[in-house]
Design a protein around this nucleic acid. Structure first.
Length: 236
DNA sequence: GACCAGGCACATC
DNA sequence: GATGTGCATGGT
C-alpha cells in the first residue's frame, strides 16, 4: 500500500512544470513551491500503518496533534492499535485510553463505528478498501457516523493513497488570506474542487500540499497568537 | 484564566 | 439550507 511513485522534489517539479493554462493553476503551484521551499517536505502522515492513520484522522478532529499522539501511544502500549482489539474492548476502556485526545466519549464511539465498518465491509482488511473506486469509497466512509468530509478525505489520501485533496480550517484561512476564495463561500467541496480541478491529480502532490498548509497554519498561529488571522511570512 | 487545536452530528428554525 | 450547540483535553 506504500507509494508507487517516488514522492520527492524532482518528481513534484516534473509534475507541476506541466502548465494547465489557468491563472488559478499557476497561483496554486506558485503557492505550493513557496511553502515547499520555505518549510521543506513534511513526510506525512505521521503514522505507521493505514489503520493507525485512519484512527489518527478520527482522533485529530478539532484537536492538537500532540494530544492525539498521547492517545495513540496509549493504544499502542496496551497492544490495542488493531481493528480486532478495538472491536473487542468495551467503549469505556477505549474512551479512557484516548482521553488525552479530548472528546473521548464521542471519539471512542466514532472509532468503534469505523472499526465495525471495516470489519463488516472489508473483513478488517484496509488493503481491500484500496480496490474500491475512490468516489464510492468516499461515499461509504461518509456513511459512517463520525466520519465527515475532512476525515474521509484524510483516510483516502493518507491511508489509502488516493489522489483526494484534504480541506481543513487552515486551507480555508490561507486561501482567503491570498484572495483565492471568499470566506462566506468556502464550502468544503468548492474549496476541494479548486485544487482538484487546477492541479494534477496526484497523491504525492496532494499529500505534501495539505501537510504544508497545516505547517503554515501552525506557524501563523504561533507567531500571531491570539489573533491568528494574518500571515507574517513574506510571500506565503 | 482565556484561547486554541489537522470536526462532526444533531436540534432548531 | 443555515445556524447554534455539545463534545473535552492539554499546551501556550
Amino acid at each position: 500500500m506504500r507509494q508507487q511513485q517516488p514522492c520527492n522534489e524532482k518528481y513534484l517539479k516534473t509534475l507541476t512544470s506541466q502548465s494547465r493554462g489557468s491563472t488559478t493553476s499557476e497561483k496554486l503551484i506558485e503557492l505550493f513551491w513557496n511553502l515547499y521551499n520555505y518549510f521543506g517536505p513534511q513526510y506525512w502522515w505521521p503514522g505507521q500503518s493505514p489503520f493507525e492513520i485512519a484512527i489518527g484522522a478520527i482522533l485529530t478532529q478539532n484537536t492538537n496533534w500532540q494530544n492525539v499522539e498521547k492517545a495513540i501511544t496509549n493504544l499502542k502500549s496496551h497492544g490495542l492499535l488493531s481493528h480486532k482489539a478495538i472491536l473487542e474492548i468495551p467503549h469505556g476502556q477505549l474512551a479512557q485510553l484516548i482521553r488525552p485526545a479530548g472528546y473521548f466519549n464521542v471519539k471512542a464511539k466514532r472509532i468503534k463505528n469505523f472499526v465495525n465498518f471495516i470489519e463488516e465491509e472489508f473483513q478488517g482488511d484496509m488493503q481491500e478498501m484500496t480496490l474500491v473506486d475512490t468516489t464510492q469509497m468516499r461515499q461509504k466512509l461518509l456513511s459512517v457516523n463520525g466520519i465527515g468530509p475532512e476525515t474521509a478525505d484524510s483516510i483516502l489520501l493518507y491511508a489509502l493513497e488516493k489522489p483526494v485533496f484534504v480541506v481543513d480550517t487552515y486551507t480555508v484561512r490561507i486561501l482567503a488570506r491570498h484572495d483565492m476564495i471568499y470566506l462566506e463561500e468556502a464550502q468544503y467541496h468548492l474549496v476541494q474542487d479548486l485544487f482538484m480541478e487546477n492541479l494534477p491529480m496526484d497523491t504525492c502532490l496532494f499529500n505534501e500540499y495539505h501537510a504544508l498548509f497545516v505547517r503554515l497554519g501552525k506557524e501563523m498561529c504561533k507567531r500571531t497568537r491570539p489573533i491568528c488571522n494574518s500571515c507574517p511570512l513574506n510571500g506565503l
